[in-house]
């Protein structure tokens, strides 16, 4: 089916889609995103052989497996990132936060880090590399790194650990040599680091899905809440709060502020870096 044979997405259809997508994922598309949304919808209509939005929508909403809804989520989410993005937060992690968390936990208990959304893996793998390179506590403390995303395609890509030159451009050359193998302009992350991150599918706004994500000491949730509206942000903040242990920390993206979303967390500053802490007496 060519794009020319696809029916245009009417305003009412866009509203219907936007409302459904918001209810299911918490992601709200502004009117300014109309072109982006229409383009992705047309791609999915074409891929599934539907020329009209109405028939595609019915197919997608009532498909028992939910496979097409997941494909649609994959198409609608933005997954652009790179290694060592907002590196100052990783530095605060290894310079201050890990030691503090280490002091809270009894010997023998793992520290658990959660990176959400994982996108194609650059963030959780950056955390792993930073810890190996900069945190001496690894000599006496095990650390688990988990990472999740709503998009199943990016999870598959994250597990492969194969990156473009652009993705690795912020990594010092010596570290690239240490942790990657360059082949045909692509950079394959070594197995040792890939094995240290566990990936899983997660929807922050799905209560049932989120109940399994618990007891994290440190959470990275950067540049995700900006895609949510106020209500979903608040819900997500509550879910994140309950996914953490008392005393645990969360990092948001540089343009995001937990203080504007929820008063449940304490603001902590480490130099110029802001992190949000679940109070030690907050229960978990």
């Amino acid at each position: 089916m060519s794009t020319a044979t696809l029916e245009k997405i009417a305003v009412a259809d866009f509203e219907r889609f936007r409302s459904m997508f918001y209810r299911k994922t918490g992601i709200h598309f502004e009117d300014s995103k109309r072109y982006f949304v229409d383009k992705r919808l047309h791609e999915r209509m074409k891929a599934t052989g539907h020329s009209s939005f109405k028939s595609y929508f019915t197919f997608m909403r009532f498909q028992a497996s939910g496979e097409e809804f997941q494909n649609l989520v994959n198409a609608m989410t933005v997954n652009e990132t790179y290694f060592f993005r907002e590196e100052y937060q990783f530095e605060a992690m290894t310079r201050y936060i890990m030691d503090e968390l280490d002091s809270y936990r009894p010997p023998g208990e793992d520290l658990r880090i959660w990176s959400v959304p994982s996108s194609t893996g650059e963030e959780p793998y950056s955390i792993a590399i930073h810890l190996i390179e900069n945190w001496k506590g690894l000599e006496h403390r095990d650390v688990e790194i988990a990472s999740s995303d709503i998009d199943s395609n990016v999870l598959a890509s994250a597990k492969k650990g194969l990156y473009s030159k652009r993705s690795v451009q912020n990594i010092p050359t010596a570290m690239i040599k240490k942790y990657f193998i360059e082949t045909n302009g692509q950079f394959q992350l070594c197995e040792d680091i890939r094995e240290s991150v566990t990936f899983s599918l997660a929807n922050l706004l799905s209560g049932t899905n989120m109940k399994q994500f618990r007891n994290f000491d440190l959470v990275f949730c950067r540049n995700l809440l900006i895609y949510f509206d106020d209500e979903s942000r608040k819900k997500a903040a509550h879910v994140l709060f309950d996914s953490m242990k008392p005393g645990g920390y969360i990092f948001l993206g540089h343009s995001e502020s937990m203080s504007r979303i929820s008063s449940m967390f304490k603001v902590r500053k480490f130099g110029d870096v802001i992190a949000y802490q679940k109070p030690l007496a907050g229960g978990a």
Partner: peptide, 20 residues
């Protein structure tokens, strides 16, 4: 000690056993 290698699931076993 160090970074833990992959397990089958990240479901927290303690939480799971506590859950009703």
């Amino acid at each position: 000690m160090g970074l833990k290698k992959k397990t089958d699931t990240i479901v927290d076993t303690e939480a799971q056993s506590d859950e009703k």
